[in-house]
Simulated assay, not measured.
Amino acid sequence: MRRLVLAVCLVSLLAGCGTFIGDSPPPSDERAVAAVEEANRSIAPVDAYRFEMDMHVAASADGQSRTVQVDGDGAVNVSAKRMRATSQTQDQTVDSYVDGYRAYQGCQEPWGGYAVENVSRTEPWATATPLHRQVLLFERSNVYWRGNETLDGNRTVLVTASPSADTLESIMDRRRTGDVGLDGASLENATARLWLDPETNRPVQSELRIRISQRGATATATITVQYTGYDEPTRVSIPPDVYDDPYQLGCPGAG
């Protein structure tokens, strides 16, 4: 079950999976397509932002169940090509960094240290960050206009999406998948929501819900990300020890 929990965490972070089970979604709404296009244009010049993440994963197999709650936050400076992200579970806090085209993933105890991987140069650097990756998900999915919705007391515009496994696969973060086998996993359902500021067209919050199965086990995950601090002064500092002899083949014990 541990491997399925890891798998569903990866998929919920746009890591991709195997086959999709379900009916084909209806065609996109033109108004929703236009809203996503405006959102993409609105974030193109963004130089910096911050994000907060909340993820809940529940898995069950052979009469047993397990839940994982992950909280996180981070900061992105596009012009400096730097990102910091911190995730925390009940007993672990993990930091990760991107410096240029090198990504450093913190390894859990008892190993510690960092694993290093290359960031793809085939797409703009910003597409490796949460905000741009979520908008890209909507660009490549069937999308639907849901109109005005109040979020935390503020008026927003809501667009939903029905991403397929192929869509998730097309924008997956390959650095995250190398140590967790996803063969045989099936994506049974995936839905996404994107709340936009009606004045700036910038994303305020995104949500992805997925359900996958693997070898008789099932897992569901909901990941919510809030985006704030657009173009506010953002300095991403990276501790010197991140660069000290990092693991080249992923974190120990991740397989």
Rank of each mutant, 00 (worst) to 15 (best):
V76L: 07
T150C: 03
V116M: 15
S141V: 06
A80G: 11
P130G: 04
V76I: 07
K81H: 15
A103K: 01
T89Y: 08
R155T: 15
V78L: 04
S87H: 14
Y144K: 02
S141F: 05
T150G: 00
G100N: 10
V116L: 08
R140A: 12
D152P: 04
L151T: 00
A85F: 06
R146S: 08
D73H: 14
Q90Y: 02
W111A: 15
Y114P: 03
A115F: 00
T127C: 09
E109V: 05
N118Y: 11
V78G: 01
T127D: 14
M83Q: 14
A128L: 14
T129R: 08
M83Y: 05
A85H: 03
T127F: 04
D152G: 07
R133P: 07
T127Q: 14
T89G: 11
V94C: 08
G112D: 04
N77R: 05
E139P: 00
A85L: 02
P124L: 07
R133N: 10
P130M: 00
T89R: 12
A128Y: 13
P124V: 14
A103W: 03
N154G: 12
R155H: 02
T129P: 04
Y114M: 03
N77P: 02
E149V: 06
M83L: 14
G106A: 09
G74W: 10
E109A: 13
T129V: 06
Q108E: 15
E139L: 13
T93Q: 15
G106V: 03
M83W: 13
P130L: 06
Y104N: 00
P130W: 01
D95H: 14
G74D: 11
Y114K: 11
R155C: 03
T122P: 00
V98I: 12
D73T: 14
T150E: 13
P124Y: 07
R133H: 08
L151R: 04
V78A: 07
Y97W: 06
N118V: 10
P130H: 01
G112P: 08
S87L: 15
F138V: 11
S96R: 06
G100E: 05
V119C: 01
G74V: 06
